[in-house]
Write a protein that binds this DNA or RNA. Structure first.
Lengths: 248, 248
DNA sequence: AACTATTATGCGTATTTATGCATTATTAAA
DNA sequence: TTTAATAATGCATAAATACGCATAATAGTT
């Protein structure tokens, strides 16, 4: 493997995981740790990553880290990566809760200047760490386990807004039943979110594809874009595509 | 986990809670307390936090530095104990942000069944941990450093509410100038909070008594009850009492 | 193709860094 | 004051790194 290829691989790994270990890379790339170190050194000098004892970290390692406990994190990182491409300066973006959304926020470039609206407390907290951009929280009664605002007031206020994009960290999505969820109050809010956005983006790891929960949030045709960690041409995504959903 | 990652995690925790305990971090990060201590030491040398006995404190909350340890919350604990006596089942209670308020929430008996309203994200997060009671968050634009909602919408919605009690974790209080604060947007909200409550309670450790900041939130006669860690008959509190403030 | 200069890589060794543990000293809370 | 928690200190160990050097790969030149 050529040096350039190794460098590309390392950068890709960092993009996904935010960090790499020299020992891991040595095995994965099948070169000595010395070589890895020299690679990291070079990349550090080129200022595309930050070398530390034991490996290297992403430059955009934005002093946040709650992970370790995040389930299916690599997949979620990939999804976050794809999703962030959609957000442009000046946009009004609606965000739900969930770990995939948190990953998305972490991966946002610091210089991005958009306005974010959310009903989720953890999402709001993560957004507050982002140096730029305005954060708007739509408050009301808070649901204890979901840690988000629910109720008529939230639905009402969402209806008064028109956003460019709505990102939903989706629990369950299925071609037949669309997006489904468990709690009525959560569903009400999600519906309102979808209604107030020009485009709805569903973020979903492939494990959650073709799963159904008790209650329907929306039919599949209300979803404009579906982002998974899979390649857009993956066989598993065909049914969604043929329903008119854009796959990324 | 890499050292830098641990550092990032610690800083993130401090960002949220304003303080960390070495013992907690040791468990969360899965390293010895020695290592945590060394981490905190380094971060302290880099002046991004303040190391104290038992853990570390946020730099951005200067008032917490005055009492030099996370445990020298005994003052705050005492205040919390006194304050919680005022809250009865069925009440509608307005809470500001700040560590004293967090302490109050932690000390609330689990069986208490009141409704809490707040504009502070950390306060809301702490309230969600309480098994009983409803939590209402009044949202709008979020202020990054204060981690709270501000703006006309918040003021408006507060004006539509009548609460039984408003607890203010007070930064500065003085007989002459009343309650004062630094940021205009914060002041607007605090004023609205006071206006919407039947009774206003100021929670203030004695070190903050007789201190003044740039901008006035309210005169001293808008404060119904003042709670400090001191004995109510303490000489220091006399001037407040003679202004008609109830001292607890 | 053969030769040379340059660059890249791996290995051994010395050095540095990171971490945990035991012991003693300090500090804070009851 | 007493007691338990937390810190500091020195030390042991393991991991990571730097460095010199030999060798291998590569590119450029004749």
């Amino acid at each position: 493997m050529l040096k350039k290829e190794r460098h590309a691989y390392i950068l890709h790994e960092i993009d996904i995981h935010n960090k790499v270990l020299s020992s891991d890379l040595s095995i994965q790339l099948n070169v000595s740790e010395d070589t890895v170190r020299r690679d990291l050194q070079e990349l550090d000098e080129r200022e595309v990553l930050t070398k530390v004892h034991g490996g290297a970290l992403s430059k955009s390692f934005h002093f946040t880290l709650q992970n370790n406990t995040v389930y299916s994190q690599p997949e979620k990182k990939i999804i976050a990566q794809k999703a962030r491409e959609l957000i442009k300066d000046g946009m009004l973006v609606l965000l739900s809760g969930g770990t995939t959304i948190i990953e998305l926020i972490k991966s946002l470039p610091p210089e991005l200047n958009a306005t974010f609206i959310t009903v989720s407390i953890p999402t709001a907290l993560e957004l507050l760490d982002h140096p730029n951009g305005e954060v708007i929280f739509i408050g009301n009664k808070l649901l204890k386990n979901a840690q988000m605002s629910v109720g008529a007031e939230v639905v009402q206020r969402l209806s008064e807004i028109t956003c460019d994009l709505c990102f939903l960290g989706t629990n369950s999505i299925d071609v037949e039943h669309g997006i489904t969820d468990l709690e009525l109050e959560v569903i009400e809010v999600k519906r309102a979110m979808i209604a107030s956005a020009k485009k709805t983006v569903s973020l979903s790891i492939s494990k959650k594809l073709n799963t159904v929960q008790r209650m329907v949030v929306c039919k599949i045709d209300a979803v404009d874009i579906l982002i998974t960690e899979l390649d857009p041409t993956d066989e598993m995504l065909k049914p969604y595509h043929s329903k008119g959903v854009t796959i990324i």
